Simulated scan of single mutants.
Amino acid sequence: MVRAGLTADRVTVAGAEVADEVGFDRVSMSRVARRLGVKDASLYAHVRSLEDLRGRIALLAADEKTIRIAEATAGLSGRDALVAFADAWRAYAHEHPGRYAATQAAIEIDPRLAADAPGPRRAVELTYGMLRGYRLSEPDLTDAVRLLRSTFHGFVALEAAGGFAHARTPQRSWERALDALHTLLEHWPTAREGDS
């Protein structure tokens, strides 16, 4: 029996909540069904498979993270935009570890769902928009995006795993890393000849 009001969106949100509680890699149809108080089979009226559910969680998380970053960076540029962007990214990862993991996982997402989801596309626009303040052009722009993503993700992943045992607080190291990124972006090295 399908519980009244059960929809693909409700199943996705329940899956995202389970991901935050137990980890994205441990989301299962059974756990989500228990959370919603239904039998596993009831979920299949709303999502096709566990992979479909995982894709939906990833898109939901991408939307949420993008909204958080957009709100944080509105009207800002340069260093202020970089710090607001990075802080919003890190805060989302801390508050929603399972959902955040979904945004970093390699998942096959239904192309029809992906086409209608603004989060991933808007995330790219926000990142490139923030970097325009540093007057970068291709291929440097792509390289800078990859550097930022690697730095932000690497930091929050190590932090979540307890990888910063030094007496210096991770917050101070985060602030200094952002200072260093800002300086690097302001003084981006000239591309080598033939680099494209």
Score class of each variant (00 low, 15 high):
80 D>V: 03
41 A>L: 12
59 L>S: 09
130 M>F: 12
107 I>Q: 08
119 G>W: 06
50 L>R: 12
67 I>L: 14
93 A>V: 06
41 A>V: 13
45 A>H: 15
87 D>F: 03
73 T>I: 14
72 A>G: 06
122 R>D: 13
47 V>S: 09
84 A>N: 01
31 R>N: 09
39 K>M: 13
130 M>Q: 07
81 A>F: 02
70 A>K: 06
83 V>Y: 00
90 R>Y: 08
123 A>C: 10
88 A>E: 01
135 R>S: 14
88 A>D: 00
141 L>Y: 01
51 E>I: 00
113 L>Y: 10
77 S>M: 05
89 W>Q: 00
92 Y>N: 03
112 R>C: 04
121 R>L: 14
41 A>I: 12
99 R>P: 05
48 R>I: 00
70 A>N: 02
103 T>I: 10
30 S>M: 12
97 P>V: 08
49 S>C: 10
107 I>D: 09
48 R>Q: 12
32 V>D: 08
104 Q>N: 08
40 D>I: 13
98 G>A: 12
94 H>D: 09
34 R>F: 14
83 V>T: 03
45 A>W: 12
144 A>V: 04
97 P>W: 10
140 D>S: 13
48 R>D: 14
52 D>L: 03
109 I>P: 03
142 T>H: 02
92 Y>W: 05
82 L>D: 00
99 R>G: 15
141 L>T: 02
51 E>M: 03
139 P>M: 07
82 L>R: 00
123 A>V: 08
101 A>I: 03
88 A>V: 01
74 A>Y: 04
74 A>T: 04
89 W>N: 00
121 R>M: 13
41 A>C: 04
35 R>C: 12
90 R>A: 14
137 S>W: 11
62 A>N: 14
140 D>M: 07
59 L>D: 11
48 R>A: 13
110 D>M: 06
38 V>N: 08
57 I>N: 06
107 I>P: 06
83 V>K: 00
120 P>Q: 07
45 A>L: 14
72 A>W: 05
30 S>C: 07
73 T>H: 03
119 G>C: 04
76 L>N: 01
101 A>R: 06
126 L>E: 11
97 P>Y: 11
66 T>M: 03
116 D>A: 15
105 A>C: 07
